[in-house]
C-alpha cells in the first residue's frame, strides 16, 4: 500500500506539467489541454484525500471528484466551442495573435 504523499507528489507534478503547457503553448487548444490536465491532477488529489480520510464512508472527496469530472466536461465543450468560434473569426488558433479586443 502506497502512503498518501506519493499520490500528492504525482498530482503536483501533473498539475505543474499542465500549467506549463497552458502557459507556454501557442495553440488555444493546447492551452485547453493543459487546463484539462490541471483539473485532472486536482481530481487525483480529491480522490487520494478521500481514500485516506478518517471517514471515507461520507464520500465527500469522491463526490467532489465526480462533480468535478462533470464540470470539466462542460468546460471542455464550451472552451472548444469558443476556440472554433474564434478560429472562424480570426482565422487562427494562436493565442499570441489574439491580442485585439476589437474584431
Amino acid at each position: 500500500m502506497t502512503p498518501l504523499a506519493p499520490y500528492l507528489i504525482v498530482a503536483a507534478l501533473i498539475f505543474a506539467i499542465g500549467l506549463a503547457g497552458a502557459l507556454t503553448r501557442r495553440n488555444a487548444i493546447m492551452v485547453l489541454i493543459g487546463i484539462e490536465l490541471m483539473l485532472n491532477a486536482a481530481n487525483l488529489n480529491l480522490i487520494a484525500f478521500w481514500r485516506y480520510s478518517p471517514h471515507p464512508e461520507l464520500l465527500s472527496g469522491m463526490m467532489f471528484a465526480i462533480f468535478s469530472i462533470a464540470v470539466a466536461a462542460a468546460e471542455a465543450a464550451v472552451g472548444l466551442g469558443l476556440v472554433i468560434s474564434i478560429y472562424r473569426h480570426a482565422k487562427t488558433t494562436d493565442v499570441e495573435e489574439m491580442n485585439r479586443m476589437k474584431g
Binding site: 502506497t2 504525482v10 487548444i29 487520494a48 481514500r51 469530472i69 470539466a72 471542455a76
Partner: peptide, 26 residues
C-alpha cells in the same frame, strides 16, 4: 490511479467522460 485508490466508480467515470468524450471533442 483512481482504481488503485479503490475509487472504482470515479475511475470508470473518468475513462467514460475523458477518453470517450473530452478526447474526441479535442
Amino acid at each position: 490511479l483512481f482504481l488503485r485508490l479503490d475509487a472504482q466508480f470515479a475511475g470508470f467515470a473518468q475513462i467514460l467522460v475523458y477518453v470517450g468524450a473530452v478526447a474526441i471533442l479535442v
